[in-house]
Amino acid sequence: MKNKRWIVYAAFSLVLLTSPAVLNRYWIDVLNVVGLYVMLSLSLNIILGHCGMFHMGHAAFYAVGAYTTAILNTVYAIPVLWLMPLSGLLAGLFALVIARPIIHLRGDYLLIVTIGFVEIVRIALINNVFGITGGANGIFGIDRPTIFGMKISTPGQFFYLIWFFVAVTIYLLRKLEHSRFGRALNYIREDDVAAAGSGIDISHYKLIAFVIGAVWAGFCGTLFAAKMTIIAPESFNFWESVLLFMIVLLGGRGSIAGVILGTFLVIGLPELFRQFATARMLVFGAVMIIMMIFRPEGILPPPPRTYRLDRTAEPEEAA
């Protein structure tokens, strides 16, 4: 059964990687958007999926990353890809500062506060906070990224850039899942009293989960700014956060494969049915209701971690 999964993953990767050869620019661009959302949803998955914190303000961290890149690139002409670590770092710091006082809030209370945060960030951006965000018009003229002197500008080139980062994300986050850290988040999600009773510092882990998720969202912000070359506050509104939230719940909390599938369904599928665009919300709403009733754990819930129990072997990574 494990092998079957791997065959599916390999086939999917192969089809995806060769798809730019047959798709037109429009559809490649759709895949680029999906790639960005996969990365963003995976970063939210740490917070919402693994740790079980109802965080509906993820676009705020995405915005911090994107604006950091945009401002430093347009003002100081620093190459955009060099700004990726810094964007992640600043988004993480921002998360640390805002999450510290609210980290003990549970469920719906945390949800409300995080919704507040994403709105505050958006409104601050519109009002040209510190005079550097460009107000409602945003920031334009962001450079294209260059790799070894090659300028990335066509959708096809962006496809490989974005999906390369998606692949790195999947690799690292999978390792994270299969570790003491990943387990600790799951213990907290399952029962925080029992987790504390087992010696886990709940607030610490919740905070770190928030920061890691934010750092990754900051990375995504850099890619987004580089891809669009123009960013505006409306790209980081509450609805974006809701979409990400929905992707994780629909796909399967704590499941990388589930989140990827969820992204294709929520972001990719509506592109296929453009003519029904007005009915989109109706369909989303109905699907969410049906899912919550019949499959509350999501479409592809994570399989249990496996461990090698023959004592001579290393603990296994797999499935």
């Binding site: 387990r183 213990y187 399952e190 029992a194 890691i212």
Partner: peptide, 22 residues
């Protein structure tokens, strides 16, 4: 932790004697 395996439940106890972070 009902949705986790018995082994992982016990690993929760090992947590406080371990060091590795994220």
């Amino acid at each position: 932790f009902h949705k986790l395996t018995a082994l992982e439940n016990v690993l929760a106890g090992c947590h406080c004697r371990m060091k590795s972070g994220s």
